[in-house]
Design a protein around this nucleic acid. Structure first.
Lengths: 197, 197
DNA sequence: TTCATTTTGTATCGATCGTTACAAAATGGA
DNA sequence: TCCATTTTGTAACGATCGATACAAAATGAA
């Protein structure tokens, strides 16, 4: 057998993820990744083939560790609409608790790289499809719970919510202001086909 | 007197704008700017002080030549709601007619640089405030024309529209699909407090 | 203990990064 | 025509880019 690695791949991906998340792909250097992960360039290139390949692994890691985690945490709550509301509200905590604030690796990557890199675009599409499906399921449960009108087109509203989420991420970067975000989310929630009691 | 410039600053800013728009700030090199503008690095650094300063000038140029132009073109139409609809629809033409597609320099810059660069964030805020005010004016005219309910809070809906626009820009980069965008814009317009006839 | 195999640390590769020094070229005023 | 001033082209600066060559270190199998 051979010499074993002195790191866990998941830890390295998490640390690299934070760097790419904050500085973007072009703004992140291999030196910076060495410092953040504690590995040498040799080890990084031995495990991952290139900066591009590492970034692809980081995108997958983000989808699992951040996107899916937030879906499970908020969009599967018993009270579907309350969970949805908390999901949107929590984006502000997520953004503002970082120094400097970081919106979303998927949205950042979409605007930096997806236009020219089809493989990256496919990864982003997969991550956003997870969110869109989770929104649709959440809305469907809200319909069944009598929170939304029975004729609510959950698939279309799910795409609308995904649109609003991406908008929130951009807006929160320019206006890192909780009151503004909260008012915006009020508007997003109020636009849903609510069932009045 | 001195030797005159052999270029018009506005032309240089337009050409540099397209490069930054497509590749981002970190992804754009001075060599690339030389090629796109036809100027040497000497002339670029003689007129602008640095890559950062050139980028700041480019942002101002974008706000005037793209943002304000699109406001004048669409959001000042006689039929306010129809103009608003065409404004959103036109984002797809704007994105898809470029090879590769380019969303919006303001949104791109927001996610790439605004978190760490306060001067840039202030510029973006100014550009987006132009849009927000134009949305509010447009909605106000729609109210006066009897297209929207009289109790419509135009300022809040203007912020909501800005949110949706930023979402459209991110989404269109990942899904450059006219039908999808059109359906999303349907949802955005339908959410407005329309006055039924 | 020897060996095949993989990881690690060091040191550096050629290319490109943003930026600048310097002199020739181009102007209107004296 | 000569001068002061600014722009331009050439050439290159030190720093950093992504990536790699190479040998020492570390493992389990034989």
């Amino acid at each position: 057998m051979a010499r074993p690695s002195q790191f866990r791949e998941s830890d390295v991906l998490t640390r690299a993820m934070l760097v790419f998340w904050q500085h973007g792909f072009a703004g992140t250097s291999v030196r910076h990744l060495e410092q953040a992960t504690g590995l040498t360039a040799s080890s990084l290139y031995n495990r991952f083939d290139s900066k591009e390949a590492l970034f692809a692994s980081v995108l997958d890691h983000y989808i699992i560790k951040v996107v899916q985690w937030r879906i499970d945490r908020y969009l599967c709550a018993d009270d579907a609409l309350a969970g949805l509301r908390r999901f949107f509200d929590s984006t502000y905590d997520y953004i503002s608790q970082q120094r400097p604030p970081m919106a979303c690796l998927l949205a950042n990557t979409a605007l930096e790289k997806s236009a020219t890199d089809l493989a990256v675009r496919a990864q982003l599409d997969r991550g956003l499809a997870l969110l869109e499906d989770a929104f649709a399921d959440c809305l469907q449960r809200a319909v069944q719970a009598g929170q939304l009108r029975a004729d609510c087109d959950c698939s279309r509203w799910a795409r609308h919510l995904l649109l609003c989420l991406q908008g929130v991420l951009v807006d929160s970067t320019i206006h890192p202001d909780h009151a503004r975000l909260s008012e915006l989310v009020d508007g997003v929630m109020a636009a849903l086909p609510l069932l009045q009691h």
